[in-house]
Design a protein around this nucleic acid. Sequence first.
DNA 1: GTTTAAATTAAACAACTGTTTAATTTTGCA
DNA 2: TGCAAAATTAAACAGTTGTTTAATTTAAAC
Lengths: 217, 217
Amino acid sequence: MHPIRNNTMSHIELNDKKIQILNVAEKLFSEKGFEGTSIRDISKEAKINIAMVSYYFGSKERLLEALIFHKTVDLKLQLENLLQENIQPLEKVNKLIEIYINRICLNKGIYRVLHFELYNKKREKSLQAFTELKKGNLKSVESIIKQGQSQGVFRKDINIQLITPTIIGTFFHFHMNRSFFEELFDLQTEEMFNNYIKNDLTKHIQQTIKALLVYEN
Amino acid sequence: MHPIRNNTMSHIELNDKKIQILNVAEKLFSEKGFEGTSIRDISKEAKINIAMVSYYFGSKERLLEALIFHKTVDLKLQLENLLQENIQPLEKVNKLIEIYINRICLNKGIYRVLHFELYNKKREKSLQAFTELKKGNLKSVESIIKQGQSQGVFRKDINIQLITPTIIGTFFHFHMNRSFFEELFDLQTEEMFNNYIKNDLTKHIQQTIKALLVYEN
DNA sequence: GTTTAAATTAAACAACTGTTTAATTTTGCA
DNA sequence: TGCAAAATTAAACAGTTGTTTAATTTAAAC
């Protein structure tokens, strides 16, 4: 019997084998793209039978949906917690940037897949879940910045909705051109690369957003 | 006879049919990815025989190489011309931003392909050409900003090499999440979308980079 | 221990993949 | 007009694709 056919919310109950499949799928999708990864590749790396993917997830397409859902659920919570914190607006923005970078770093595979596989509107279902996530994130960002504006520490002639693209876009472009920057900054190991992100890149983004938001440096 | 076998610089002589194939390939690659696009898709849309792609370019892989080469040759020239212009540093930076946005807008398809297909290091040859392009671009940017620094109008405590990621990354993220921002800003037509980029998004990026570079706003 | 459902497997399915072949048509030049 | 090179074609090639089948093994409940 297929466990999928009668249970559309199959995301929720994730046994070890399902998670194992999802992790391998994320790795391979991010390395070779959705189309470039075959179910045989996944099953080989996950050391399971080919049929198990269809058995657990129904299809390759639904495996992608499950993967997106599985990897994006808790970001929303993280942002809402930040909103409640009682700290200076600028410090809140800096923490926001750190959260974003950390999140995407942790799930770097799936974010690549998300942006590239969802670009064409065909994968409606996955896209919708992702859009909802982005809307929620934007609301959090708006709330944080308007707090700063009402306290008189942030400028008001800025386009709040375009701040997220600058934060995430900067980081993403860095990540997408990884080998270029590895050579440019001589980052020979994985650790050096991650340290550069954690220190220099994060600092650059924070400095940029601060310059944009705050009247006087 | 294959015209490819004996002529590795086949990029240079581009007859109409070759260009037609390249344009269709760009469109489909950007819509469905490199792996997601079959030679049959390309030949069908370009209204040519399947064998013509192999006949002209040798292979699907070499078609991608030819496409990248064909679409990136003249950006370098454009930047070098900007360098020579006798205008204020900040104005030069603003023009630089406009050039970048305009270029990627024109070749939006290929840039998407470039970032996603070249992410894994396997496509060495295409990657190398792209890396050289980026190095040249970075040199131009460095030169412009150091001009402003030596004139005392630009700050010196900034990471010059991370400015391009912020410019391109912001634009790219906006573009990659096109349907999200179309809904957010109610951009119903292609024209409205392009106008938003030309006016609001460009202004946001220029404002951001200015805030980062200039002492006093 | 028997029974029943879930998990796992190898094999097969038809459709599609990039590429090559060999034959035919078109083209440009003498 | 005749001829050789280039362009174009349909067909075939061997591999791979996602998915399904039907049989077998494992696990749990009674």
